[in-house]
């Protein structure tokens, strides 16, 4: 008994020692993306002498809020989605970024530079299909709504976000005008009305891993999906394809929760992960576009063709409007809950 207590104490002690040596906790969304981050960022960064402890979460900002409010911050760098960067920044959950410690602002895509967040990568919500089953490739959101041409179910994300934009594009709104239309009461009505046409044929998905599964299993003919998940399936030998027209691209950001004791190490990590070489390595692992523009030049054309940031794919894409969703999100999501129950 005594021995085991001693052993526990020793183990605990050695953990404490490690903790006092350089160590940071980096929080990500798990899955293929986490693996790519591990290879491109965490493992090379550890060679500089700071241990990286990866933690997975599901984007729950409540956890960060609770940490910051109780002043017990144990996360040092967190990957968050764009709506949460702006909101968390407003509410004082994140440190204001000192860009001199990150890199040269001009090297980054404009959207990657914000007060509290440093853009990690560009990802896109797009239309995807199984190339083995559909030969006549769909090219627009109107095709997604065309049940005669492409019979079968449609996969869509559970919720209002993205789906309302897609519905408007299917109804003939140009990608550039989507948010202008959606901001009006009539525009929102129009989007919901268009969505109603498809309602009986929708199979809803919750997690990003589901749409490629639906396609491979043949459950749906067409689906919305995160482009990185489709390219991950392609790497596994599945013949899944992306239709880029009217995709909605967005960024994920690194943030530093306010009050972390390892702020310096956190900046070092973000600086490391923002360097062009490392971002290029990351894009080779998963098809998300680098935020450091210099990384694009280091990539093979084959890899570029699958990135949301390549000129050809970005041509008819819509940038996700964070401000619109921060303002209207709660009301539209509630309207969605009401719509779906009818």
């Amino acid at each position: 008994m005594k021995k085991s207590i001693l052993a526990t104490a020793l183990v605990a002690g050695s953990f404490a020692l490690q903790a006092s040596a350089q160590q940071i906790t980096v929080v990500n969304f798990g899955g293929a993306n986490a693996n790519a981050q591990k290879k491109a960022y965490y493992e090379p960064f550890e060679k500089t002498g700071t241990k990286v402890v990866p933690v997975e979460y599901n984007g729950e900002q409540a956890k960060i809020k609770a940490m910051v409010e109780t002043k017990k911050v144990t996360w040092d760098v967190v990957e968050v989605e764009s709506p949460d960067v702006a909101r968390g920044c407003d509410e004082g959950l994140f440190e204001k970024i000192d860009w001199s410690k990150v890199g040269n602002k001009a090297d980054f895509q404009p959207a990657a530079v914000t007060d509290c967040g440093v853009g990690i990568f560009v990802w896109s919500t797009v239309m995807a299909y199984n190339g083995e089953k559909i030969k006549d490739r769909p090219t627009s959101w109107a095709d997604f709504w065309d049940l005669k041409k492409y019979p079968g179910k449609r996969g869509m994300r559970k919720g209002a976000r993205y789906n309302l934009e897609f519905a408007l594009m299917a109804d003939g709104v140009k990608p550039a005008d989507v948010y202008k239309v959606l901001a009006t009461k009539e525009g929102a009505d129009r989007a919901f009305k268009k969505l109603t046409e498809l309602k009986p044929h929708i199979q809803w998905w919750e997690a990003g891993a589901q749409p490629p599964q639906f396609l491979v299993a043949g459950d749906v003919a067409l689906t919305t999906a995160y482009n990185g998940r489709i390219s991950a399936a392609q790497r596994e030998g599945k013949y899944l394809q992306v239709a880029w027209y009217g995709g909605i691209y967005d960024l994920d950001y690194w943030v530093i929760p306010k009050g972390t004791p390892n702020k310096d190490a956190a900046y070092k990590f973000i600086h490391f992960a923002s360097e062009a070489d490392n971002q290029a390595k990351y894009a080779e692992e998963i098809s998300y576009g680098p935020t450091n523009s210099k990384a694009l030049g280091k990539l093979h054309p084959k890899i570029l063709a699958n990135l949301p940031t390549s000129p050809q794919n970005a041509k008819d894409a819509v940038q996700f409007n964070v401000k619109f969703w921060a303002d209207q999100g709660e009301e539209l999501e509630k309207r969605f809950a009401s719509w779906v129950a009818q």
Partner: peptide, 25 residues
Amino acid sequence: PDTSDAGALARRLNSAVAGGRSLVM
């Protein structure tokens, strides 16, 4: 005293009226 107070106010008003967040901030 702090941005976070404005953020809390913005969040509260936004859940009462959509758009309140950007207006307050």
